[in-house]
């Protein structure tokens, strides 16, 4: 569902990604771990069609990027640092707007279903500007799932979430993976995503420096992860 080979991205003189290879299969949940500035967000933005690669081959949900970007975007749900919502509008209005853009069939039923799922059904007619950070993140999750994407890209989805909201997010992600959705979660928090992902790719200084299988995804940072990061950071 996600296939990346020899992907590089340059911003001016700075290489943000160097020859990245990555594969996420159907129903697989993979964590992309790394410190701040490692290139996680850049990789996710390229996969979402928000940025163009400098070199390499990127395929998302069977579509080659950037050539088939519009078709790929229809299959991708993206949860970034910002909730990508409109403060002035209610939860209902925000989701109705995105449902129109994605041409979601039976949109109202889908919106009702998602607002119940993320626990915002009772606040659906309030302007989003009054929502807490956790509520915004839950609504952003509903936005990302609205069009039933086959690929989910999540950038630090647990940041600033309370325990209850983080557990809700984990539950939703497990259910989506069981339904066959490919999920890539960028994070620097191994403790949180370690329990979710089947595998972790360690990104440092724009390079995949190690792969951790499920068995090694514990709460404690593995020594070779720390060494790999140190080596990559010089």
């Amino acid at each position: 569902m996600i296939q990346v080979s020899q992907l590089s991205k340059r911003f001016g003189y700075r290489m943000a990604l160097h020859g990245v290879n990555l594969r996420v299969g159907r129903g697989e949940m993979v964590a992309l771990l790394g410190p701040n500035g490692a290139g996680k967000s850049t990789l996710l933005r390229i996969l979402a069609g928000l940025a163009q690669p400098t070199a390499g081959r990127v395929q998302v949900a069977g579509c080659l990027l950037p050539k088939q970007a519009a078709a790929a975007r229809a299959q991708v749900g993206y949860l970034g640092h910002q909730p990508l919502l409109y403060d002035e509008l209610t939860a209902d209005q925000n989701l109705e707007f995105f449902a129109r853009l994605y041409a979601v069939p039976s949109a109202q039923a889908r919106i009702d279903e998602l607002l119940v799922l993320v626990g915002l059904d009772h606040r659906r007619r309030e302007a989003v500007r009054g929502y807490s950070r956790g509520m915004l993140q839950r609504l952003a999750l509903a936005r990302a799932l609205l069009h039933r994407p086959r690929v989910l890209l999540l950038d630090e989805p647990h940041s600033a979430l309370d325990l209850q909201t983080a557990d809700l997010l984990d539950g939703v992600l497990r259910a989506e993976a069981r339904a066959g959705v490919s999920i890539l979660i960028a994070s620097h928090d191994l403790g949180r995503v370690g329990g979710l992902a089947q595998r972790a790719e360690l990104l440092a200084d724009g390079r995949i420096v190690a792969t951790l299988p499920k068995a090694k995804l514990g709460r404690k940072l593995p020594a070779h992860y720390a060494r790999a990061l140190e080596a990559a950071n010089g």
Partner: peptide, 14 residues
């Protein structure tokens, strides 16, 4: 400024 432009750019429309 608030990042919502990305929300528009992610949509599968021209």
């Amino acid at each position: 400024e608030r990042g919502s432009l990305d929300g528009l750019l992610l949509a599968p429309v021209e």
